[in-house]
């Protein structure tokens, strides 16, 4: 869980909005109206999940403090059972370890009334066929890291013939990274695109989507799914394993169950002055 939350923490002091529902918890982080990240913690991830609110309560908190606080609960070689409650007497978020009656760690995090999310959106496909590709998370991170060198604007180009994905950076120098689907489909796992499409994204937002990918994601050799929707909205999905306390090895032989996965989504708006290149041929 800490891994999942840490992956959307790209700066030290960062606010987040938490939304509770009968399906689980969603944590939303936003930056400059151009980048938004969501962490989905489904109710199946929790040992016990009790929900008795009307509507979907939302509250704001400091993501940095929340992560540091959760880190306080964890000890090397020990996965604690933590009870999380909301609201407390003063609308706090209350956390308490419940492993031992004689030793406990507790925390109270002050919450605030959340700011309105400046851009809540519907991610809609750009055309009749969704434009999407899946690449190994480690490879994606490496590519984005390499793109830091040229400059602040990164062009993402997808073309069906030959099926390939191109990252191009121009600035202090030029760099182009191509993923050829047929050449090495071990890196580019899946590809779906029926027309040529290209958008530019600010590097600092693109970099934030991969800068804190948990090491467990890289070790598990997972894939990250990237989709381009209407208006060039880029959606990046990572999957993070969330292990149940005391059952760390239950699924090691059979792969991770879907219910043990936390979904992380990033949405990046394209640069506004960019004219998309769309070729329907």
């Amino acid at each position: 869980m800490v891994d999942a939350l840490s992956s959307v923490r790209w700066k030290r002091h960062q606010d987040a909005v938490v939304e509770l529902s009968e399906h689980g918890i969603v944590l939303i982080v936003e930056e400059s109206g151009c980048l938004q990240a969501k962490v989905y913690l489904k109710r199946e991830l929790f040992l016990v999940y009790e929900y008795a609110a009307e509507g979907r309560p939302r509250f704001g908190l400091s993501l940095g403090l929340f992560v540091d606080c959760l880190n306080t609960f964890s000890a090397p070689g020990h996965a604690p059972v933590i009870e999380i409650r909301y609201p407390g007497p003063d609308m706090q978020l209350l956390l308490k370890s419940v492993d031992s009656p004689d030793a406990c760690i507790y925390a109270e995090i002050r919450t605030r009334i959340p700011e309105t999310i400046s851009w809540d959106y519907n991610f809609e496909p750009a055309g009749s066929v969704p434009v999407t590709f899946t690449v190994r998370s480690a490879v994606l991170k490496e590519a984005v890291d390499d793109l830091e060198w040229p400059g602040s604007s990164i062009q993402l180009l997808l073309q069906p013939q030959p099926p390939s994905v191109t990252f191009r950076g121009e600035g202090h120098g030029d760099i182009q990274i191509d993923f050829q689907y047929y050449a090495n489909n071990d890196l580019l796992i899946a590809f779906q695109c029926d027309h040529r499409i290209s958008y530019r994204y600010k590097y600092k937002f693109l970099g934030a989507t991969t800068s804190n990918i948990p090491s467990s994601v890289l070790k598990d050799n997972r894939g990250s799914k990237l989709s381009i929707g209407r208006g060039g909205l880029l959606k990046i999905q990572h999957l993070v394993s969330v292990q149940r306390p005391g059952a760390q090895h239950s699924f090691s032989d059979h792969g991770q169950q879907p219910s043990r996965i936390a979904y992380i989504e990033f949405y990046v708006k394209p640069e506004e002055d960019d004219t998309p290149i769309i070729d329907d041929s």
Binding site: S62, L65, C69, T72, A103, C104, Y106, A107, I109
Partner: peptide, 10 residues
């Protein structure tokens, strides 16, 4: 002002 974290051993 934003957070209280503690640990108690009994």
């Amino acid at each position: 002002s934003l957070i209280t974290v503690g640990s108690e051993f009994r």
